[in-house]
Amino acid sequence: MAFLEARDLVVEYATRRGPVRALDEASLEVAAGEVVGVVGESGSGKSTIGVALARLLPGNARVSSGDVLVGGRSVLAMGDEELRALRRDTLGFVFQDPIGTLDPTARIGRQLGWMIGGKPGDRELVEHLERVRLPDPERTLRAFPHQLSGGMAQRVSIALALARAPQAVIADEPTASLDASVRSEILELLVSLTREAGTALMLMSHDLRAVRRFCTRVAVVYGGRVVETAPAQELFSSPQHPYTRALLDAAPGAEAPGETLRPIAGIPPVLHGAFRGCAFVGRCACAVEACSVERPVVHSDDHDVLCHLAPVKEKAA
């Protein structure tokens, strides 16, 4: 059974230019202990799924329909106390900007102490930082966030996210703001620690290669919907959705020497309401008439595709 689940989730942000629909019936499941990659371009809505799981949406956001469940319980229906317990004990978060996530006024030791109890200087705090392979844990405990490099601060954030042994960690572009050369170390750390602990990990990233390397299943988000979900190897070796195919074609890595990469033409859509057809229709090389007038429904077994052209298998309920 799914531990984290977004069910036909619709989220809209109120902006000065009217409502912007970030999620347009997005559905996604993460089983306990599973490492799921959520891939999508900036603005695709993948971050919104992550924050919606703990009801951490910003003030101008509204869940118009659908539901979010953690451990089978609706997060939207939770009372304050239950919601706090969910955020505190059940879920861990790692965000893009580690230094911005930490409290600038408190030393790392104190912040870690807030999470697990205990005073700065306790052996236990040191052990938490040793787990995230910080070279000099004692010194880091005494440091303020601004004294850390991005990579070190992200290690601290990972230690904080895992401190209370959550059942799932939601990592939203945890390496995007870091120096390119430390990214893979940080991801490796995050994945290996969650795996060891049997914690589910939802890794939101635009880095296809990292997702392929670390995730067991991958969900591709486009235009506020999850357009394709499949086991990682299968998704990369036989992508079904035209967007996924275009994305893999555009990325350097699979081309022959001297070949020119083919970027996806056009730009991602900004939705202002429910979209009548498939949001990719304007950029899709193989769109047919149905694509612009009819919402594709999921074609599913283990490999879900949201496309009119996908080979029709069993239709899921």
């Binding site: 809209e12 230019r17 603005g43 991602p268 900004v270 202002h272 309401g273 009548r276 229709v281």
Partner: peptide, 16 residues
């Protein structure tokens, strides 16, 4: 429920 737009709006720039 919500309004349907015929095509994705092209302008992508983030709100200033």
């Amino acid at each position: 429920m919500s309004v349907t737009f015929p095509s994705p709006t092209p302008a992508a720039p983030a709100a200033p």
